[in-house]
C-alpha cells in the first residue's frame, strides 16, 4: 500500500506491505540503516526514532500508521554543515560511544528529551534513557555527553542542527 509521510523533513511516498513495522520500512525499504534492529519487541531502544516529536520504538509501530505524520531518524540528526551535530560531537568527545550499536537510539532519546526539557537534571537524563540498553558504556559518559549538550545549547554556543524536532 502507498504510505505518504514526512521523513527527516522531506515529504515522501513509498509502497510497502501493510504488515511490516516502521523499522522494516526504514531499513529494508528505504535503506536507512542508521536505525538499528535489536530485540524487535520494544525492550532495547536500538530502533528509537522520533514520531511527531516524541521518541518511540520503530519496531512497535506498523508502517502504515505513520501516514501523514513526521518521522525523524538518526539520518535526520546532523549539524548545519551536514556533519555531526553538537550532541553527536559531545558523544565523541566524552567517549560515550563504544561499539556504537545503541547510539543512534540513544541520540534520538537524548534529542527528544532536550526538545521537551532543555535543562534536564542528571536524574532526568537517566530516566529518559530507561528505554535504551547499552551493553558497553555503563551510561556514565552518555549522561555526561547529553548534559554537556544541554549546557552548550543553553549557552547558545552550539545551536542544534537542522533536525526539526530535536
Amino acid at each position: 500500500m502507498e504510505i505518504e509521510f514526512t521523513l527527516n523533513d522531506q515529504q515522501i511516498a513509498t509502497d510497502a506491505p501493510p504488515d511490516i513495522t516502521l523499522l522494516a520500512l526504514l531499513r529494508d525499504h528505504l535503506s536507512l540503516t542508521g536505525t538499528k534492529e535489536g530485540c524487535e519487541i520494544g525492550e532495547c531502544g536500538a530502533c528509537s526514532v522520533i514520531l511527531d516529536g516524541r521518541v518511540i520504538n520503530s519496531c512497535m509501530v506498523l508502517a502504515p500508521q505513520v501516514a501523514g505524520r513526521s518521522v525523524i531518524t538518526i539520518e535526520g540528526v546532523r549539524g548545519a554543515g551536514g556533519g555531526p551535530n553538537d550532541m553527536q560531537e559531545n558523544f565523541i568527545d566524552y567517549g560515550a560511544v563504544q561499539c556504537g550499536f545503541c547510539i543512534p537510539g540513544v541520540i534520538m532519546a537524548g534529542e527528544a528529551l532536550l526538545t521537551h526539557n532543555p535543562r534536564p537534571t542528571r536524574e532526568e537524563i537517566r530516566w529518559a534513557l530507561a528505554g535504551n540498553l547499552c551493553r558497553c558504556t555503563g551510561y556514565q559518559q552518555i549522561v555526561d555527553a547529553i548534559e554537556a549538550t544541554a549546557q552548550g545549547r543553553a549557552n547558545g554556543a552550539d545551536n542544534p542542527g537542522d533536525h526539526g524536532e530535536g
Partner: peptide, 9 residues
C-alpha cells in the same frame, strides 16, 4: 511503565 518509548505509544 517501562520506557519513554513505550509510554509514548
Amino acid at each position: 511503565v517501562g520506557s519513554p518509548q513505550i509510554r509514548n505509544l
